[in-house]
Write a protein that binds this DNA or RNA. Sequence first.
DNA 1: TTTAAGGTATCACGTTGCGTTAGAGTCAAC
DNA 2: GTTGACTCTAACGCAACGTGATACCTTAAA
Lengths: 248, 248
Amino acid sequence: MKVKEVADLVGISVRTLHHYDEIGLLTPDETTEAGYRLYSDDNLETLQQILFFKELGFPLKKIKEIINSPSFDRREALKLHRKMLVEKRTRLDKMISTIDKTIEHKKGAIQMTNKEKFEGFDFSQNPYEKEARERWGDEAVDRSNAKLKSMTEEERKALGDRMNEIYRNLADLRDTSPESEEAQAAIKEWYDFLNSDSGNHYSLEAFKGLGQMYVDDERFTKNIDQFGEGLSRFMRDAMAVYADKNKE
Amino acid sequence: MKVKEVADLVGISVRTLHHYDEIGLLTPDETTEAGYRLYSDDNLETLQQILFFKELGFPLKKIKEIINSPSFDRREALKLHRKMLVEKRTRLDKMISTIDKTIEHKKGAIQMTNKEKFEGFDFSQNPYEKEARERWGDEAVDRSNAKLKSMTEEERKALGDRMNEIYRNLADLRDTSPESEEAQAAIKEWYDFLNSDSGNHYSLEAFKGLGQMYVDDERFTKNIDQFGEGLSRFMRDAMAVYADKNKE
DNA sequence: TTTAAGGTATCACGTTGCGTTAGAGTCAAC
DNA sequence: GTTGACTCTAACGCAACGTGATACCTTAAA
């Protein structure tokens, strides 16, 4: 086999084979008259061994020593390789679980404080209260505020957890189209949540307006986007689509 | 935290941290008046991310771009890490199975040629024949040779396969004690094989002597040790133990 | 209070494992 | 017989540190 065939077969560059020849790590058994390198099956097997050792992080110099050593027992070497690969896999598994933990931790950390959580709903603390009253009527706003204030801490927490859940779900979908079925299903959950649990009733128009506020008011934007960049915009769009579609 | 504390904690060198500072990849949040680098918790977290990317084979330049990018979303990055680690694990699994296959293949390939296989038994080809005759008597040696010569190719092959099987079994045990139960059981198989299939009868004393030859005659040694370094010595010891134990 | 041990800092050159042209020859096919 | 894909050697380049050399900082023990 010629250089490129070998290179393509095992997924390395021609230059690498040249290099291995240069440093005497893998000299092909034969060469043509023109000087072309011809690798034998045996060469290929040695190459495999070399790549295994490389994968394990051995420097080429050490690899050369190893495979040239008279005490080098291919079978033993293979067993050793196997063992080290398994160890590497174990390390990888650990890294993966570390990541999983970190992700979980981030999920936990992203739980907003209660204050932050309800900033978007307690209109009495919101600079947009006046606009909200004008847009959706006094009763709705008052009902919403009253309900929030009357809740116990535990109730607030449960509510907050449910909100986080919905947000996360939406965040995962934010790269899809706002009109998509999943997006609309997730947004419906949000709509239902607002209308049931939080005690006030949002008209479809108010719902659409709320979505717009998610983008216009940076306090909403900042909080929501903690769950994923662009989530606020995505929610606005999805909420608008939802409102328009269910009006008809 | 100072450089060395960080270095020891995450398992990299101080020089590496210096380097990362040099190229602006990770500049510590603070420095003392004396110019000592002081790493914050935040720095540590960034370092973790850097090391993750490095583990995945990204060049430092790319890593710098990535973590400095405004669109860099830690959560998304973590998910990506996870995905790539899982892919890496898959590749590792493939490599491990490749090794397993290679080992199996080697097991097959180690089947000696018929000539080699029987060098240890056809005393007519063995320089030790004279000694063998003196030691175990003419009849035994003649019987052995006659039997071997009268076999068909197929019979030889079957016999050879059985031999290989026993050898492999012994090779796997060669790190245990020769007196161990498994070792003695495996050696008994060998003794029985010699006495039944190969047609000649070995006295316990002859068996012990044969074992010694495995070490003394390099032609035996070389062939046997193909199944694993030190197997010949192990067999000699186990055969001696077997002979002595069954004499009483 | 000195002093020894161990950290830390900044150059600055060395090393590994190839990548990357550059210039020239080779081979198979049309 | 001329493309086009491959091959060669040679030489420089580069990333990611390793490895001193030399000098300053810190701290606990003498």
